[in-house]
């Protein structure tokens, strides 16, 4: 893939995750988790949104090499997350896969202010 295509794919997946994590189905599943896990999910959502905004506004050429270097893991992570988002009842699995995808995204863009 061209670097900008890897970026667009990542952006699309982050957008999908953002939308799914505020859905009614996710909300219902979240209520069955411990308070600690619920907190973790909400922080994860904020991190996904921050990553999305960073990915949206970062010059793609400045992250070109990092995108190429992490292409395989970004593609695999994106596919896994896409699959996980199809079944939000398995919320802990969704969270784990989303967190893993985010950690790969974090190799490409800075995720802390």
């Amino acid at each position: 893939m061209a670097p900008y295509e890897i970026r667009d794919m990542t952006l699309k997946e982050l957008r999908e995750a953002r939308k799914a994590m505020v859905s009614w189905e996710y909300y219902k599943a979240l209520k069955h988790l411990s308070a600690e896990k619920q907190q973790e999910s909400k922080i994860l959502l904020a991190d996904i949104i921050y990553a999305l905004e960073e990915m949206r506004t970062t010059e793609w050429q400045s992250i070109r090499e990092k995108l190429l270097l992490n292409e395989a893991e970004l593609v695999a992570g994106s596919e896994s997350l896409d699959k996980a988002l199809q079944n939000l009842k398995k919320i802990e699995k969704v969270m784990a896969i989303a967190a893993n995808f985010l950690s790969v995204v974090g190799r490409v863009i800075k995720l802390v202010v």
């Binding site: 909400k42 922080i43 949104i49």
Partner: peptide, 27 residues
């Protein structure tokens, strides 16, 4: 996004998230 989980966050996390999300928006 900031409001969604505001009640569940500590002041420290609120501040961090506010800063993070505002920086990205300004860009």
């Amino acid at each position: 996004t900031l409001l969604y989980s505001r009640d569940d966050w500590s002041e420290k996390i609120r501040e961090e998230n506010y800063q993070k999300l505002t920086v990205s928006l300004n860009d």
